[in-house]
């Protein structure tokens, strides 16, 4: 039984939306074994959003499930980079060629 669900977040991962997003992410995680998170449309992420990602990862790990971020927007990537959390979150960060230098 390996059902995987994909969520694509459209709004910003900021304090204004985290309440709804938390519910949505956790609900999805409860129903599926694997959650794929597409953050490519997230234009902004703040500390609250970052916390949410950390929470999702932790909960997934606890439940023996998987939560994978399959796409990062530049904003998300820069926050994760800045906080040195790439290893902790464990998702491959794809750096677009034109930004790599």
């Amino acid at each position: 039984m390996s059902n995987s669900q994909r969520i694509s977040l459209q709004e910003d991962l900021t304090i204004y939306h985290v309440l709804d997003q938390k519910q949505r992410l956790l609900d999805t995680l409860a129903q599926a074994d694997e959650v794929e998170l597409d953050l490519s449309q997230v234009a902004e992420m703040d500390t609250a959003g970052l916390q949410l990602l950390i929470l999702l990862k932790r909960e997934a790990q606890k439940a023996g499930k998987k939560a994978v971020i399959i796409a990062h927007s530049q904003a998300v990537r820069s926050v994760i980079d800045f906080c040195n959390l790439a290893a902790y979150l464990g998702d491959p960060l794809v750096i677009p060629a034109q930004e790599s230098n």
């Binding site: 304090i15 985290v18 309440l19 997003q21 938390k22 956790l26 609250a48 916390q51 929470l55 909960e59």
Partner: peptide, 14 residues
């Protein structure tokens, strides 16, 4: 950061 249920996404735990 507390358990998922108690975690208030609007609080800062970091």
């Amino acid at each position: 950061m507390p358990e998922a249920e108690e975690m208030d996404p609007e609080s800062c735990y970091l």
